[in-house]
Amino acid sequence: MDAAEWIAASSAGVAVLAAGFSWRQVRHARGQVAAAQEQVVVARQQLEHAEKAHREQNEPYVIVDIQPAGGPRRGLLVLIIENIGSTVARNVRITADPPLESALGDEYTTRLHRALERTFPMIPPGRRLEYTFDGPMRWENIELPTAYTFTVRCAGPFGQMEEQEYAVDFGTWVETLLPALPLKQVESNLDKICKELRSLVGVLEKSHAPAIREENERVMQEYRDRVAAQAAQRQGDDGTESGTMDEG
């Protein structure tokens, strides 16, 4: 093999080695590009999650529920509309399926319809609205539904929000209420009050016994004096009438 052939063979070898090196560089570069693209995708997802979290933390959340009332109104059911979010809810509209109907009568049913037919201009954070919905007689009227679906539409600081649906079925916890016992509870509370009053009266009588006796004696003495005065007046009147008759 002459020098020209050696040079040609060497050049070919160098070219093969350069091609292999270039191919490895290209493959490495492609890997870097793919990794960079994956990082971009991950960064975009993280940004989207951060924006979503920020949006959720700063959006209003208007919930609708039917709950048993507490305190003196125990035994009643109330319709609750409350903004549990951190910002103002605007242009709030609520619909119920099926339409609300109260066993308390047409007056309460009309009030509920008026409440849901209006558009609330705004409901501030923490604002809670309560409407009397029904009473213990609800459980006696099996024709009325116990399940409702409420749809809430409103706007927040980022514009119109997605519709929210709340499925409420108070028939599932009717056993936790005491539909027939509110009066019994009232009677029990009245009995406790009467016992406490009797006990208080007993304590007062013991602690103020001398004063009470003195007051009773004073009243009795005033009564005796009044009776005696009336008797003396009658005797005087009788004597006057007798003297007048004698002169005649």
Rank of each mutant, 00 (worst) to 15 (best):
V16Y: 05
E117K: 14
D2Y: 15
E5D: 06
V62D: 05
P136I: 13
E107C: 13
V42G: 03
E196L: 03
A35G: 03
F21M: 13
R30C: 01
I63Y: 13
T151G: 04
P68D: 11
E163W: 03
R128A: 12
I81S: 01
Y131C: 08
G20P: 01
D2T: 15
G85E: 03
A103Q: 14
V92L: 02
T119Q: 14
Y148A: 00
I212F: 12
S242I: 15
T151W: 00
P121K: 04
E214F: 12
G70Q: 11
G243L: 12
L178E: 11
I212G: 07
L129H: 12
L129C: 11
T240C: 08
A232M: 07
A167K: 11
S86D: 05
L100P: 00
G75L: 04
R27A: 13
P125F: 04
R93V: 01
E38Y: 06
T172Y: 07
F150S: 00
A211T: 05
T244V: 13
L129K: 05
G13V: 13
L190H: 02
R55F: 12
H113G: 09
V41R: 10
E222L: 10
R44H: 11
D246G: 05
W173G: 06
P72K: 09
R138K: 03
W23Y: 10
R213E: 03
G71P: 15
L183W: 14
I63R: 10
G156L: 00
R44V: 08
S188L: 15
L190C: 08
A53R: 14
R118M: 12
I193P: 02
Q67K: 13
E247F: 07
L190Y: 04
T176M: 10
E214T: 08
Q37P: 01
S207E: 13
L144R: 02
A232Y: 06
S10M: 04
E247V: 14
G126R: 07
R27L: 15
V88D: 09
G248W: 04
A167L: 08
E217N: 10
E165H: 12
V14R: 06
A50W: 11
Y166D: 08
Q185K: 07
K206E: 14
G71A: 15
E107A: 12
T151Q: 03
E5H: 08
N141F: 09
E51Q: 15
G71K: 10
D191T: 06
V92H: 00
T109K: 11
W23A: 06
A50M: 11
T95L: 02
A19I: 04
R234F: 02
V16K: 03
I193H: 07
R114H: 10
I94N: 00
P182I: 09
S86N: 06
L116F: 15
S242P: 01
R198N: 13
S10D: 10
A3Q: 15
R138W: 00
A96I: 02
G248C: 05
P99C: 03
I80G: 03
P72A: 11
M220Y: 10
N189G: 14
R138Q: 01
L77K: 00
H28K: 13
D97Y: 03
D237H: 09
Q164V: 02
R73Y: 13
E175Q: 05
G20L: 04
V152N: 00
E82P: 06
T132N: 14
G105K: 06
Y148V: 01
M220K: 05
R153D: 01
A69W: 10
R27T: 13
S188M: 12
P210K: 02
P210H: 03
A35T: 03
